[in-house]
Amino acid sequence: MYELITQPWPWYVAGPLIGLTVPALLILGNKSFGISSSMRHVCAACLPANISFFKYDWKKEIWNLAFVFGILLGGIIAVTGLSNPNDIVVADELKTELAGYGITDYSALVPADIFSWDQLATLKGFIMVILGGFIVGFGTRYAGGCTSGHAIMGLSTLQWPSLVATCCFMVGGILTANFILPYILSL
């Protein structure tokens, strides 16, 4: 049993569990599932700078910060008690392609060849770790939500603007991964 838990969980276990977050948050306190908003609440709490977009009572949304803090704790628990001892299994096509960019380390969930502190000072590391993060923060707020808010909560409540957003996430990601990322990885 323990071995089953430490192995990577299949999609048909993970997906439904994630889907259950939607009713869980609604029933626990009328909260709509969404994660990117937490970053806005951090801005409102720490540096509102008289910007009207951040001038609201962030304490009303403290549940959202509690939720993302829980996600962080969940990450700690998952690697402490339930860690998978093996390398991550990745599609052969992807492995072949990544080998061409010098990415060969599969010991962690993210490639240590890029996502490490000593890579941060390189142009590639800066683009992927810092600039990429900036675009995620800017883009999700501009879109009014991320994968959780639009793709899961928005689609669960059958809202077509969320379907538009989700399609745009996918189009942006597919174009980037196939046509832009190869140039970044070659740096």
Partner: peptide, 28 residues
């Protein structure tokens, strides 16, 4: 939802993470 959505897609493909995973990754 279109412009921001496309931008987020760009960032998602580069960092390999949307906001939720960012928190879990730090924890992991």
């Amino acid at each position: 939802q279109v412009i921001g959505g496309l931008l987020f897609g760009l960032g998602w493909a580069i960092t390999g993470a949307c906001p939720g995973p960012l928190f879990a990754l730090v924890g992991s």
